[in-house]
């Protein structure tokens, strides 16, 4: 049976009747097959709720789930439960002993894959030095095959011991939401890339104070001289509907961070498992003058 001998409309009908995993595998067969899939993309992406990268920093393995629109949502989390049937790829560190890998050209980059029947999905491998580039090529391939209208998320499983943390690998993937990182949120504020109009936030986490203190190290907080009294940050609480004059909890902290783009300062602190950030309308110099 020669697929290319079918009229285009028939080829499209066949594509529309394939499941997502088979489509992904077909996309590796040839550039023309990938083009055919891309031409049917509206149909394909419509049935996808999200694609989730679950990265385990301990062994560098990333499991990619494709969650179907028809899959019921979990009541509490408002997201679909994930099972092995939802996995469309695993991305792992290259095991030098593996010799049954085959290489596929993924957007101009040759990547090792294994299709050994042990799993129904492909297993892609990367060298540590080439990790980011492999993840980017694979993600861009997903964008081509499944479309950029699909929700892409990057998650890391809970990690509890502080010493396991901060070997962060967060590839710069287009269209991906990162659920991972408080660190990422703060760093993006510091770089002026996000949350530019933020005035105040309390971010509750499942982590201990000790853990969050190590986060503060990671985001490179600065300190007001310990002998000086830091200024009190508070703003009107817009979320307190009952009382228009309600204000946020006073944030008095020796710790602060500075935004690179305009030198504005934010006081930061941790209380229990909560991270607090209050943004000042002051430059670092003006802010330090307020500390007595």
């Amino acid at each position: 049976m020669i697929l290319s001998k079918y009229p285009f409309v028939v080829q499209k009908e066949i594509i529309d009747n394939m499941n997502h995993l088979d489509l992904l595998l077909l996309s590796f067969v040839s550039k023309n097959m990938k083009k055919l899939i891309v031409s049917s993309q509206k149909m394909t992406s419509k049935s996808i709720r999200s694609i989730e990268y679950q990265y385990d920093r301990l062994d560098g393995t990333c499991v990619v789930y494709l969650l179907d629109e028809r899959k019921p949502l979990e009541e509490y989390y408002e997201r679909s439960s994930r099972t092995v049937d939802d996995v469309i790829m695993r991305i792992v560190k290259l095991d030098e002993d593996e010799n049954d890998n085959v290489q596929f050209n993924v957007l101009g980059k040759m990547i090792d894959f294994r299709f050994d029947g042990e799993y129904k999905y492909p297993v892609a491998s990367y060298h540590e030095w080439d990790k980011e580039s492999v993840f980017q090529s694979i993600h861009n391939h997903f964008l081509d095959v499944f479309g950029d209208a699909v929700e892409y998320n990057w998650e890391e499983p809970d990690w509890k011991d502080p010493e396991e943390c901060f070997v962060p690998f967060i590839p710069k993937l287009k269209n991906v939401s990162f659920f991972v990182e408080l660190i990422d949120i703060v760093n993006r504020w510091k770089l002026g890339e996000a949350f530019r109009i933020l005035e105040y936030a309390q971010i509750r986490t499942h982590h201990s104070t000790q853990f969050l203190l190590s986060v503060l190290d990671e985001i490179e907080v600065k300190f007001i001289d310990a002998l000086r009294q830091p200024p009190t940050h508070t703003v009107r609480d817009c979320l307190s509907w009952g009382n228009k004059n309600s204000h946020t909890y006073p944030l008095i902290s020796h710790r602060y961070i500075v935004r690179a783009t305009d030198n504005r300062v934010a006081s930061v602190d941790v209380m229990g498992g909560t991270f607090l950030i209050g943004v000042w309308d002051k430059t670092e110099e003006e802010f330090l003058k307020m500390a007595r």
Partner: peptide
């Protein structure tokens, strides 16, 4: 479509006689 369900890219190529790039 069912003919290639669960097959590897090389097996799909063989079943549907898809030319290489």
């Amino acid at each position: 479509a069912m003919m290639v369900k669960g097959k590897s890219p090389e097996e799909i190529r063989e079943i549907w006689m898809i030319p290489t790039d």
